[in-house]
């Protein structure tokens, strides 16, 4: 996994709630057997019409917006467990998603793929969305080490939560497999002492 430290960039606003993983990457694009290339079909049906022409009203097609940060309405990533959703967002160049609420599985999938979910209050999310829509060139700084989102335009910073272990993993580019495999002995002991085994 790629290491994550500080991201400074503009943002793309998606002021829609309950964005489900079927919108992020529709099921018909899940047929690949590798992890690459999903970015092309990120938000496919919101981004393109039936003939493959870009829908100009959609933020990702709007040249005013750019950057590695996606700011989206609450309950982002609900629905299916497809990790392809996190892959697609990452593949399209995003490193951070800001929302006021993330669906559990999506949050985990994002963290396992070097994509940082930053949860903020409803109120702050609202202000951030407004700021980006009004001033698309606004820059944001996401500092994972300090667990801080800094908005230079407001000279304001807010802290965000992240599990300390997951933070370590992101900063160092580690993932859970190495750790779990290193636990083999403990797992074998557990298996041998189980009161009830299936």
């Amino acid at each position: 996994m790629e290491k994550f430290e500080i991201i400074q960039s503009g943002a793309v606003p998606l002021p829609i709630e309950n964005i489900d993983t079927d919108q992020i990457i529709p099921a018909r694009f899940l047929k690949a057997t590798s992890r690459e290339g999903f970015g092309e079909n990120l938000f496919r049906d919101w981004r393109y019409d039936g003939d493959g022409n870009p829908k100009m009203g959609f933020a990702l097609n709007n040249p005013r917006y750019s950057g590695q940060i996606l700011v989206a309405g609450k309950n982002f990533g609900c629905g299916s467990s497809r990790e392809h959703a996190a892959w697609a967002i990452h593949d399209a160049g995003f490193r951070v998603v800001i929302s006021s609420y993330f669906a559990d599985i999506f949050r985990g999938n994002a963290l396992n793929n070097g994509l940082l979910p930053v949860q903020v209050s409803d109120e702050l999310l609202h202000r951030l969305l407004e700021q980006v829509e009004q001033e698309p060139q606004t820059q944001f700084v996401v500092d994972l080490v300090k667990q801080e989102l800094f908005i230079p335009a407001w000279n304001e910073s807010v802290s965000f939560e992240i599990d300390p272990y997951k933070k370590e993993c992101l900063i160092n580019g580690y993932d859970d497999i190495d750790f779990l495999v290193s636990q083999k002995e403990a797992i074998e002991v557990y298996e041998s002492t189980r009161a009830w085994a299936y």
Binding site: H84, I105, G108, N109, D175, D176, I177, L180, I187
Partner: peptide, 19 residues
């Protein structure tokens, strides 16, 4: 339900690291 990275974790260790 789990994501594909976790599918690999369970394949490798029969365990997940979760809260």
């Amino acid at each position: 339900g789990i994501g594909t990275s976790q599918v690999a974790q369970v394949m490798a260790s029969q365990c997940l690291l979760i809260s």
